[in-house]
Design a protein around this nucleic acid. Sequence first.
DNA 1: ATTTTTACTATACAAAAGTATATCAATATA
DNA 2: TATATTGATATACTTTTGTATAGTAAAAAT
Lengths: 123, 123
Amino acid sequence: MIMNGLQNISEIKKCPVQYVLAINDTLNVISGKWKLPILASILYGNYRYKDIQTNIDKITPRMLSKELKELELNGVITRNVYDSTPVRIEYKMTESGKNILTVLDAMVDWGVSHRKSTLKHSD
Amino acid sequence: MIMNGLQNISEIKKCPVQYVLAINDTLNVISGKWKLPILASILYGNYRYKDIQTNIDKITPRMLSKELKELELNGVITRNVYDSTPVRIEYKMTESGKNILTVLDAMVDWGVSHRKSTLKHSD
DNA sequence: ATTTTTACTATACAAAAGTATATCAATATA
DNA sequence: TATATTGATATACTTTTGTATAGTAAAAAT
């Protein structure tokens, strides 16, 4: 952990390169317009291309393909081809992918309390 | 919290709009090329425009100004004008802003364990 | 035999994000 | 008086990200 109730700046000075890389990895997985909707959709139970596309609805096939490929490449989801007839393709979260929910939890917590603290009624 | 050791999908189905908004707020604060370097620099103790610019070094004044304005607008930092001579301007984290470290902690944790689980040596 | 569904790809384009470079006004320093 | 420093802004440009729209191949349904 970086922070555990830090009192002065000296405690924060140590930020190994590994941490920076880790943060960037995480950011890559969740940033962009469609990453979270896609992950949410798969977590929700939409495993097939068409299901995800229908569920998100404003996404273009180009974007969906692009993002699915990237998420697969990053080890967050898997693409499984079932050799049934007709051929079925299912995208599913990896075990590691599922754990991204812990990050989303932290984001929800901060976002909610930040909204409270700033009391912004105008967005 | 969204997730507390969920076993089946039904547990995840409830995701209030508030949470989505909160996540987007959080993403806005940390995404983009320069947000985290700037926040890190301020947390590290660089409060003045020039200090931050020198510390980050490849950032252009246009980007630094733009991002500082946005971070201020989002209630993450404050811009304080000290009427000394010469006039001194200092950017500092708000209390709420400092708490973003909890999100970064979660991101580091996930990123590190995800790297371990995928063992990617090729980036 | 024709249409529909699934799972995409291709091409062109628009918008957003970021870069490069020059400039500025106020004050301080040599 | 000339130069440097601080805290920026202005303009033009490139790159990245996302949109719009059409098309495709393989199989299934009508």
